[in-house]
């Protein structure tokens, strides 16, 4: 257990999913010494993984953070809803005293495999709402507080390798994630005078709850179990990765830990691929 982040408070969105990046990041930052506010649009998101039935979402993540000796708070907040985000920021100040770090892991994938000519504008709007507008809204709510505190800060957003390298049927997700990169670059310049570093990361293939809906749908279509589908899919995806494995949420926590420490003081406005070598541009 480290104390590199001792005295700091982190605000992590999208932190309720059992297998999500948000939970892993929240607990890792706590292990490195930070107190943590965890938020999500769902207090307890469903998981399509066998054995996850008893998962209590935010409540369990708070317990995990407290179990490593740090303070925690939680809030149900939709990243698209400014009032909810501002209330969660206020809650953080009331309960944990300050905010130093924002890690925005809230995100959604929407229907994939739908070409633009067949696309539904409503689906696009829903996706852009969470991934793009949500990135703006949470940046606004937390950014204002960081400026007010005038102690600098660190912001990390999650874009996607699928953004930088779109494939047929992925345009909505890809475009919404390019938006995250654009917001990150502009925000980095806007907040540089306040010594607030803003960066984003582009994950490749990761085993989380993000693909749950997809796995449920496709396994039904094929008449196989979700586990069987997942095994085939992961094998196929791993073969595409130079390091020959899927990423884990611990890999994400490793990178984000670096991005919120003093080791990255001169790093801002960049997006970092975390893809096991799949993506190099």
């Amino acid at each position: 257990m480290g104390d590199v982040l001792k005295g700091k408070v982190a605000f992590v969105t999208g932190a309720a999913a059992k297998r999500g990046m948000g939970r892993a990041v929240a607990v890792r930052l706590a292990k490195e010494g930070a107190d943590v506010m965890v938020t999500d649009v769902f207090a307890s998101p469903k998981s399509a993984w066998a054995g996850d039935e008893g998962w209590k979402g935010l409540e369990d993540v708070v317990k995990e953070i407290e179990a490593v000796g740090r303070k925690a708070a939680s809030a149900v907040a939709n990243v698209v809803n400014l009032a909810e985000c501002e209330a969660a920021v206020k809650d953080t100040i009331d309960k944990l005293g300050r905010i130093d770090i924002l890690v925005n892991c809230a995100g959604t994938r929407g229907p994939v495999g739908v070409n633009i000519v067949d696309g539904d504008v409503k689906d696009w709007e829903a996706l852009f709402d969470v991934n793009a507008i949500g990135t703006m809204v949470i940046s606004k709510a937390v950014g204002k507080e960081l400026i007010r505190q005038n102690r600098g800060g660190k912001i990390v957003h999650i874009a996607s390798a699928a953004g930088k390298l779109p494939c047929p049927g992925s345009a909505a997700y890809a475009a919404s994630k390019w938006a995250v990169i654009g917001i990150t670059q502009a925000l980095a310049m806007e907040l540089a005078p306040y010594k607030i570093n803003v960066n984003s990361i582009n994950p490749g293939f990761f085993a989380t709850n993000l693909r749950d809906d997809d796995a449920t749908m496709h396994s039904k279509k094929k008449g196989i179990t979700v586990e069987e589908f997942r095994k085939d899919e992961y094998k196929m995806l791993s073969d595409m990765v130079p390091l020959k494995r899927m990423g884990t949420v611990d890999d994400i926590a490793n990178l984000i830990f670096f991005l919120v420490t003093d080791q990255s003081e001169y790093l801002t406005g960049v997006d970092i691929n975390i893809t096991g070598g799949t993506l190099m541009h």
Binding site: A188, M189, A192, G204, P242, L243, G247, T248, D250, D251, I252, N254, L255, F258, Y266, L267, T268, G269, V270, I272, N273, I274, T275, G276, G277, L279, M280
Partner: peptide, 14 residues
């Protein structure tokens, strides 16, 4: 950097 390879990282103050 357990899952990061082949990357160009600009450390350039923005």
């Amino acid at each position: 950097s357990s899952y990061v390879t082949g990357q160009v990282l600009c450390v350039a103050g923005g």
